[in-house]
Amino acid sequence: MDEPIVRVEGLSKQIKQQSIVSDISFSLSKGSILALCGGNGAGKSTVLRMLAGIMQPTTGETIVNNIRWKHNRRLYCQQIGYMPDDYAFNHGLTAEETMSFWASLRKVHKKRVGEVLAMVGLENVRKKRVTTFSKGMRQRVMMAQAMLAKPLLLIMDEPTNGLDPFWTREFIKLLKQLKQDGSTIVFSTHQLEAAENAADTVIFLNHGRNVGEGSVDSFLDRYENLYAAFNDCLGLE
């Protein structure tokens, strides 16, 4: 079996003595896709922020490509592309200018800007200001910036929010292509159909706890769909 490219060990987060995430652990091999599924307040974003190196865990550890966040945060973060669940764009910048700014930060050649904008279907509007874009178009800008440096690990927080049905399907195709190219992907969603169609494995979260996990195929062998599996894990069926 391949050495895991991502290891999350006993990850927990407490804020003002309130437990937000409790004892989350998982490992991923290269070229696999994990979906963190759950409703609002389930702890999905907190797990992803800790994995991305943005938020320090109260306990536990995250390791990417054998690099421990605690030991070398700079090198750790260089392995990762991160798409947040929301972002306040600069009012004056076009999509191309926004991406060029991020490319300079990541030391990525400007040619890559056009490539990733084309991958998310924004090449024809690259000269328009991002603040004039719809929610779904802004989501695609954030997807593009996460992919800029061809990261080993791609982390996406609620990437399908605001996407219409066409771009939800295109997003799933894009993830599968990135997987074929060797990327490892972790994304969060409350849209279980997207997880069912895009992910290899899922973890169901509720109030910051893992209430069920496994391969998508193993769940679909036992349940009609991931909605039924999730409800059963919550004790609702």
Rank of each mutant, 00 (worst) to 15 (best):
H91G: 10
F89L: 01
M1G: 14
F166M: 15
T94L: 01
V108Y: 01
E237M: 08
C233G: 04
L51D: 09
L11P: 11
S27F: 08
S100T: 14
S45Y: 04
K150Y: 01
I155N: 07
I5C: 10
Q17H: 11
V64K: 09
V141K: 00
L154C: 00
F219W: 13
K179I: 06
R73P: 10
E9P: 08
K128Q: 14
L174D: 00
W167P: 02
V202A: 06
M143F: 00
V64I: 14
W69K: 15
G38W: 03
S22L: 09
Q78G: 07
F26I: 07
I63F: 07
L93T: 00
S100C: 13
A35Q: 09
D217V: 08
I172W: 04
T59S: 12
P57T: 11
I20D: 04
G121N: 08
P4L: 12
K110M: 11
N206Y: 09
G31Y: 04
R209P: 04
I54C: 00
N90D: 14
L122Q: 00
F187A: 05
T201Q: 10
Q14K: 15
D86W: 02
N65H: 14
K135H: 12
I20V: 13
V116R: 01
R169N: 13
T201A: 12
T98W: 01
A199K: 08
A88L: 01
W167C: 04
E9T: 10
I5G: 07
F219Y: 15
G39H: 11
F26G: 09
T58N: 07
V21H: 06
D85I: 03
G208D: 06
F133Y: 05
S22V: 11
V141D: 00
K70L: 07
V113Y: 00
M119D: 12
K127M: 03
G162C: 06
V21G: 07
I185K: 05
M142P: 00
T59P: 06
M83Y: 01
E237N: 09
E97K: 02
L175A: 14
L236I: 06
N90A: 07
I80G: 12
I24P: 05
R129M: 04
R209Y: 05
Y76H: 10
D232T: 09
A95V: 01
V108N: 03
E115T: 09
K16C: 10
Q191F: 06
M143T: 02
K70M: 04
L105F: 11
G53Y: 01
L236N: 10
S45A: 10
R112C: 00
R112F: 03
A195Q: 07
N90F: 10
M55E: 12
R74E: 14
C233E: 08
N124P: 12
L51C: 09
I172L: 09
L205Q: 09
Y87G: 00
A229I: 13
Q139I: 05
F133Q: 00
L152S: 15
L11R: 05
L226K: 07
N197H: 15
Y76K: 10
L234N: 06
Y76S: 09
G10D: 11
A194K: 06
I67V: 13
